[in-house]
Design a protein around this nucleic acid. Structure first.
Length: 305
DNA sequence: AACTAAACCAACCGCCACTAC
DNA sequence: TGTAGTGGCGGTTGGTTTAGT
Protein backbone atom coordinates (compact mmCIF):
# COMPACT_ATOMS: atom_id res chain seq x y z
CA UNK A 1 0.00 0.00 0.00
CA UNK A 2 1.51 3.28 -1.05
CA UNK A 3 1.24 6.61 0.59
CA UNK A 4 -1.90 8.56 -0.10
CA UNK A 5 -1.37 11.51 -2.43
CA UNK A 6 -0.94 14.91 -0.82
CA UNK A 7 -3.93 16.21 -2.75
CA UNK A 8 -6.57 15.14 -5.23
CA UNK A 9 -4.64 15.44 -8.45
CA UNK A 10 -7.68 15.40 -10.69
CA UNK A 11 -9.16 18.47 -9.05
CA UNK A 12 -6.09 20.65 -8.88
CA UNK A 13 -4.63 23.16 -11.25
CA UNK A 14 -1.06 22.79 -12.36
CA UNK A 15 1.43 24.98 -14.10
CA UNK A 16 1.85 28.70 -13.93
CA UNK A 17 -0.09 30.64 -11.33
CA UNK A 18 -2.57 33.27 -12.40
CA UNK A 19 -2.73 36.73 -10.84
CA UNK A 20 -6.05 35.85 -9.33
CA UNK A 21 -4.64 32.75 -7.66
CA UNK A 22 -1.70 34.75 -6.33
CA UNK A 23 -4.07 37.34 -4.91
CA UNK A 24 -6.23 34.72 -3.23
CA UNK A 25 -3.21 33.09 -1.66
CA UNK A 26 -1.74 36.39 -0.48
CA UNK A 27 -5.06 37.55 0.91
CA UNK A 28 -5.58 34.31 2.77
CA UNK A 29 -2.10 34.27 4.30
CA UNK A 30 -2.32 37.94 5.18
CA UNK A 31 -5.42 37.23 7.23
CA UNK A 32 -4.72 33.75 8.60
CA UNK A 33 -0.96 33.49 8.42
CA UNK A 34 0.99 30.48 7.29
CA UNK A 35 -0.71 27.46 8.70
CA UNK A 36 -1.69 24.04 7.53
CA UNK A 37 -0.72 23.92 3.88
CA UNK A 38 -2.82 20.88 3.24
CA UNK A 39 -6.06 22.56 4.18
CA UNK A 40 -5.07 26.02 2.95
CA UNK A 41 -6.04 25.62 -0.72
CA UNK A 42 -9.59 24.63 0.14
CA UNK A 43 -9.92 27.36 2.75
CA UNK A 44 -8.52 29.96 0.37
CA UNK A 45 -10.67 28.77 -2.50
CA UNK A 46 -7.76 27.60 -4.57
CA UNK A 47 -7.70 24.55 -6.78
CA UNK A 48 -4.09 23.88 -5.96
CA UNK A 49 -2.08 21.35 -4.06
CA UNK A 50 -0.97 22.54 -0.61
CA UNK A 51 2.61 21.96 -1.55
CA UNK A 52 2.17 24.11 -4.60
CA UNK A 53 0.73 26.92 -2.47
CA UNK A 54 3.61 26.72 -0.04
CA UNK A 55 6.14 26.85 -2.84
CA UNK A 56 4.43 29.75 -4.54
CA UNK A 57 4.33 31.69 -1.29
CA UNK A 58 7.89 30.94 -0.27
CA UNK A 59 9.50 31.44 -3.63
CA UNK A 60 7.47 34.21 -5.11
CA UNK A 61 4.83 35.93 -3.00
CA UNK A 62 6.51 36.42 0.36
CA UNK A 63 6.74 40.15 1.03
CA UNK A 64 10.32 40.03 2.24
CA UNK A 65 11.73 38.65 -0.98
CA UNK A 66 14.48 40.58 -2.65
CA UNK A 67 14.13 40.79 -6.39
CA UNK A 68 16.75 41.53 -8.96
CA UNK A 69 20.27 40.48 -9.77
CA UNK A 70 22.62 38.94 -7.27
CA UNK A 71 25.39 41.23 -6.10
CA UNK A 72 29.06 40.28 -6.13
CA UNK A 73 28.89 40.11 -2.36
CA UNK A 74 26.05 37.61 -2.58
CA UNK A 75 27.99 35.60 -5.17
CA UNK A 76 30.89 35.37 -2.77
CA UNK A 77 28.74 34.27 0.11
CA UNK A 78 27.06 31.61 -2.00
CA UNK A 79 30.39 30.23 -3.18
CA UNK A 80 31.82 30.22 0.30
CA UNK A 81 28.82 28.58 1.86
CA UNK A 82 28.55 26.05 -0.94
CA UNK A 83 32.15 25.06 -0.37
CA UNK A 84 31.28 24.45 3.27
CA UNK A 85 27.80 23.03 3.03
CA UNK A 86 27.42 21.57 -0.43
CA UNK A 87 24.00 21.67 -2.04
CA UNK A 88 22.24 22.69 1.15
CA UNK A 89 20.35 25.44 -0.60
CA UNK A 90 18.01 26.20 2.24
CA UNK A 91 20.91 26.70 4.61
CA UNK A 92 22.67 28.91 2.11
CA UNK A 93 19.47 30.87 1.58
CA UNK A 94 19.35 31.39 5.32
CA UNK A 95 22.43 33.55 5.03
CA UNK A 96 21.05 35.66 2.20
CA UNK A 97 18.12 37.76 3.34
CA UNK A 98 15.37 37.93 0.77
CA UNK A 99 16.70 35.09 -1.33
CA UNK A 100 15.07 31.70 -1.61
CA UNK A 101 16.69 28.31 -1.84
CA UNK A 102 15.14 27.79 -5.26
CA UNK A 103 16.47 31.11 -6.50
CA UNK A 104 19.95 30.37 -5.23
CA UNK A 105 19.88 26.88 -6.65
CA UNK A 106 18.89 28.20 -10.05
CA UNK A 107 21.46 30.95 -9.85
CA UNK A 108 24.13 28.46 -8.91
CA UNK A 109 23.30 26.16 -11.78
CA UNK A 110 23.07 28.87 -14.40
CA UNK A 111 25.71 31.41 -13.35
CA UNK A 112 28.09 30.47 -10.60
CA UNK A 113 28.83 26.98 -11.88
CA UNK A 114 29.91 28.41 -15.20
CA UNK A 115 31.81 31.20 -13.52
CA UNK A 116 33.80 28.74 -11.45
CA UNK A 117 34.46 26.49 -14.42
CA UNK A 118 35.84 29.40 -16.44
CA UNK A 119 38.13 30.11 -13.49
CA UNK A 120 39.26 26.50 -13.65
CA UNK A 121 37.49 25.45 -10.49
CA UNK A 122 35.39 22.37 -10.10
CA UNK A 123 32.04 23.64 -8.79
CA UNK A 124 31.39 20.39 -6.96
CA UNK A 125 34.63 20.12 -5.08
CA UNK A 126 35.83 23.73 -5.21
CA UNK A 127 39.20 22.44 -6.26
CA UNK A 128 41.11 23.20 -9.43
CA UNK A 129 39.70 21.31 -12.40
CA UNK A 130 43.08 20.07 -13.54
CA UNK A 131 43.98 18.68 -10.16
CA UNK A 132 44.65 14.95 -10.23
CA UNK A 133 41.81 12.85 -8.96
CA UNK A 134 42.42 11.20 -5.67
CA UNK A 135 42.16 7.57 -4.82
CA UNK A 136 39.02 5.86 -3.77
CA UNK A 137 40.44 5.55 -0.28
CA UNK A 138 40.75 9.23 0.39
CA UNK A 139 37.58 9.90 -1.51
CA UNK A 140 35.72 7.66 0.83
CA UNK A 141 37.32 9.27 3.83
CA UNK A 142 36.66 12.76 2.59
CA UNK A 143 33.11 12.13 1.57
CA UNK A 144 32.39 10.40 4.82
CA UNK A 145 33.75 13.37 6.70
CA UNK A 146 31.89 15.75 4.45
CA UNK A 147 28.70 13.87 5.06
CA UNK A 148 29.35 13.90 8.76
CA UNK A 149 30.01 17.62 8.64
CA UNK A 150 26.69 18.21 7.06
CA UNK A 151 24.53 15.74 8.85
CA UNK A 152 26.02 14.79 12.16
CA UNK A 153 23.93 17.17 14.17
CA UNK A 154 20.87 17.24 12.04
CA UNK A 155 18.90 14.97 14.29
CA UNK A 156 20.63 15.84 17.51
CA UNK A 157 21.95 19.34 17.87
CA UNK A 158 25.29 19.64 19.59
CA UNK A 159 24.58 19.50 23.28
CA UNK A 160 28.00 19.94 24.78
CA UNK A 161 31.14 21.89 24.21
CA UNK A 162 32.86 18.63 23.29
CA UNK A 163 30.37 18.06 20.50
CA UNK A 164 30.71 21.63 19.35
CA UNK A 165 34.46 21.25 19.34
CA UNK A 166 34.14 18.11 17.25
CA UNK A 167 31.87 19.90 14.84
CA UNK A 168 34.32 22.76 14.55
CA UNK A 169 37.13 20.38 13.73
CA UNK A 170 34.99 18.75 11.08
CA UNK A 171 34.19 22.09 9.53
CA UNK A 172 37.84 23.08 9.68
CA UNK A 173 38.75 19.83 7.96
CA UNK A 174 36.26 20.35 5.19
CA UNK A 175 37.20 23.94 4.81
CA UNK A 176 40.90 23.25 4.56
CA UNK A 177 40.36 20.44 2.10
CA UNK A 178 37.80 21.94 -0.16
CA UNK A 179 38.29 25.64 -0.15
CA UNK A 180 41.10 27.42 -1.88
CA UNK A 181 40.67 31.06 -1.36
CA UNK A 182 42.89 32.54 -4.02
CA UNK A 183 40.55 31.13 -6.61
CA UNK A 184 38.09 33.66 -5.40
CA UNK A 185 39.38 37.02 -6.34
CA UNK A 186 38.15 39.01 -3.41
CA UNK A 187 40.00 37.04 -0.77
CA UNK A 188 43.33 37.92 0.60
CA UNK A 189 44.73 34.63 1.79
CA UNK A 190 47.41 34.39 4.38
CA UNK A 191 50.50 32.71 3.07
CA UNK A 192 50.91 29.92 5.53
CA UNK A 193 52.12 26.49 4.66
CA UNK A 194 49.74 23.87 5.81
CA UNK A 195 49.68 20.23 5.00
CA UNK A 196 46.19 18.95 4.69
CA UNK A 197 45.06 15.53 5.73
CA UNK A 198 44.50 14.76 2.11
CA UNK A 199 48.04 15.63 1.17
CA UNK A 200 49.34 13.35 3.82
CA UNK A 201 47.22 10.42 2.97
CA UNK A 202 46.06 10.47 -0.58
CA UNK A 203 47.65 9.00 -3.62
CA UNK A 204 46.73 9.67 -7.18
CA UNK A 205 45.39 6.75 -9.11
CA UNK A 206 47.80 7.62 -11.89
CA UNK A 207 50.85 7.47 -9.64
CA UNK A 208 53.10 4.53 -9.88
CA UNK A 209 56.11 5.25 -7.70
CA UNK A 210 56.85 6.86 -4.40
CA UNK A 211 59.05 9.36 -6.14
CA UNK A 212 56.21 10.49 -8.40
CA UNK A 213 54.00 10.68 -5.41
CA UNK A 214 56.45 12.88 -3.55
CA UNK A 215 56.86 15.15 -6.56
CA UNK A 216 53.14 15.56 -6.96
CA UNK A 217 52.70 16.27 -3.30
CA UNK A 218 55.46 18.85 -3.46
CA UNK A 219 53.83 20.49 -6.49
CA UNK A 220 50.54 20.45 -4.75
CA UNK A 221 52.01 22.06 -1.66
CA UNK A 222 53.67 24.74 -3.76
CA UNK A 223 50.55 25.44 -5.73
CA UNK A 224 48.49 25.64 -2.58
CA UNK A 225 50.89 27.76 -0.59
CA UNK A 226 49.09 30.89 -1.59
CA UNK A 227 45.69 29.31 -1.52
CA UNK A 228 45.28 28.21 2.03
CA UNK A 229 43.26 30.54 4.09
CA UNK A 230 43.03 31.14 7.75
CA UNK A 231 39.44 30.55 8.61
CA UNK A 232 38.73 31.56 12.13
CA UNK A 233 35.48 29.76 12.56
CA UNK A 234 33.93 30.31 15.93
CA UNK A 235 31.39 27.81 17.05
CA UNK A 236 29.69 27.92 20.38
CA UNK A 237 26.36 28.09 22.03
CA UNK A 238 24.52 31.09 20.76
CA UNK A 239 23.18 33.82 22.96
CA UNK A 240 19.78 32.94 24.29
CA UNK A 241 16.97 34.12 22.14
CA UNK A 242 13.84 35.73 23.33
CA UNK A 243 10.62 33.88 22.76
CA UNK A 244 9.41 36.65 20.49
CA UNK A 245 12.25 35.89 18.12
CA UNK A 246 10.59 32.59 17.43
CA UNK A 247 7.17 33.93 16.62
CA UNK A 248 5.72 33.22 13.22
CA UNK A 249 5.72 36.91 12.49
CA UNK A 250 9.38 37.43 13.22
CA UNK A 251 10.28 34.27 11.35
CA UNK A 252 8.50 35.71 8.38
CA UNK A 253 10.46 38.91 8.56
CA UNK A 254 13.84 37.46 9.35
CA UNK A 255 15.93 35.20 7.21
CA UNK A 256 16.83 31.84 8.61
CA UNK A 257 19.70 32.16 10.94
CA UNK A 258 23.05 30.68 10.11
CA UNK A 259 22.73 29.22 13.52
CA UNK A 260 20.20 26.86 12.04
CA UNK A 261 22.90 25.27 9.95
CA UNK A 262 22.36 22.01 11.67
CA UNK A 263 18.80 21.38 10.75
CA UNK A 264 15.34 22.63 11.32
CA UNK A 265 14.96 20.76 14.58
CA UNK A 266 17.76 22.61 16.26
CA UNK A 267 16.22 23.81 19.46
CA UNK A 268 19.31 25.32 20.99
CA UNK A 269 20.91 27.68 18.50
CA UNK A 270 24.60 27.41 17.86
CA UNK A 271 26.86 30.29 17.01
CA UNK A 272 28.86 29.84 13.83
CA UNK A 273 30.48 33.20 13.38
CA UNK A 274 33.51 33.09 11.12
CA UNK A 275 36.41 35.26 10.29
CA UNK A 276 38.72 35.21 7.30
CA UNK A 277 42.34 36.11 7.69
CA UNK A 278 41.66 38.47 10.53
CA UNK A 279 40.00 40.91 8.19
CA UNK A 280 36.64 39.87 6.87
CA UNK A 281 34.31 38.88 9.65
CA UNK A 282 30.80 37.54 9.60
CA UNK A 283 28.56 37.42 12.62
CA UNK A 284 25.89 34.81 12.70
CA UNK A 285 22.32 35.94 13.09
CA UNK A 286 22.14 35.04 16.75
CA UNK A 287 25.14 37.14 17.58
CA UNK A 288 23.81 39.96 15.43
CA UNK A 289 20.53 39.78 17.32
CA UNK A 290 22.38 39.66 20.60
CA UNK A 291 24.36 42.75 19.64
CA UNK A 292 21.22 44.53 18.55
CA UNK A 293 19.44 43.60 21.74
CA UNK A 294 22.33 44.78 23.83
CA UNK A 295 22.67 48.06 22.00
CA UNK A 296 18.96 48.61 22.14
CA UNK A 297 18.97 47.83 25.89
CA UNK A 298 21.85 50.19 26.43
CA UNK A 299 20.02 52.84 24.44
CA UNK A 300 17.01 52.27 26.60
CA UNK A 301 19.04 52.57 29.78
CA UNK A 302 20.84 55.61 28.42
CA UNK A 303 17.47 57.16 27.80
CA UNK A 304 16.46 56.33 31.30
CA UNK A 305 13.91 53.74 30.14
C1' DA B 1 12.14 37.72 -40.64
C1' DA B 2 12.65 32.99 -39.41
C1' DC B 3 14.82 29.51 -37.25
C1' DT B 4 17.73 27.30 -33.66
C1' DA B 5 20.26 26.93 -29.52
C1' DA B 6 21.20 28.49 -25.10
C1' DA B 7 19.85 30.51 -20.92
C1' DC B 8 16.68 31.27 -17.45
C1' DC B 9 13.50 30.23 -13.85
C1' DA B 10 8.94 28.75 -11.94
C1' DA B 11 6.98 24.71 -10.77
C1' DC B 12 6.74 19.78 -10.05
C1' DC B 13 8.15 15.34 -8.09
C1' DG B 14 9.86 12.18 -4.91
C1' DC B 15 12.15 11.44 -0.84
C1' DC B 16 13.12 12.19 3.98
C1' DA B 17 12.51 13.69 8.76
C1' DC B 18 9.52 14.92 12.20
C1' DT B 19 5.27 14.54 14.80
C1' DA B 20 0.98 12.87 16.53
C1' DC B 21 -1.62 9.12 17.49
C1' DT C 1 6.80 0.88 18.79
C1' DG C 2 4.80 1.32 14.41
C1' DT C 3 2.28 3.98 11.08
C1' DA C 4 0.21 7.74 8.63
C1' DG C 5 0.13 12.62 7.85
C1' DT C 6 2.60 16.69 6.97
C1' DG C 7 6.16 20.02 5.89
C1' DG C 8 10.46 20.83 3.90
C1' DC C 9 14.27 19.98 0.84
C1' DG C 10 16.97 18.97 -3.33
C1' DG C 11 16.87 17.34 -8.03
C1' DT C 12 14.70 17.77 -12.26
C1' DT C 13 11.58 19.27 -15.87
C1' DG C 14 9.57 22.07 -19.19
C1' DG C 15 7.87 26.49 -20.78
C1' DT C 16 9.44 31.09 -21.93
C1' DT C 17 12.76 34.45 -23.23
C1' DT C 18 16.98 35.92 -25.33
C1' DA C 19 20.90 35.66 -28.34
C1' DG C 20 23.01 34.10 -32.40
C1' DT C 21 22.96 32.87 -37.28
Amino acid sequence: MGRSPCCEKEHTNKGAWTKEEDQRLMDYIRVHGEGCWRSLPKAAGLLRCGKSCRLRWINYLRPDLKRGNFTDEEDEIIIKLHSLLGNKWSLIAGRLPGRTDNEIKNYWNTHIKRKLITRGIDPHTHRPLNEKTTTATIKTTTSATTKATQLDFKNTPPQSLAEISLLKSQLDFKYNNNFHSSQYSSFNPKKTETTSVEENNCTSSSMTTDEEQRQQQQQKRESHQDQDVNLDLTIGLAPSQTSSANSAESRLQQPLSSCQLFGSVLTRPVCVCWQLDGERRELCRNCQNQNQNQSSKSNHSNNGL
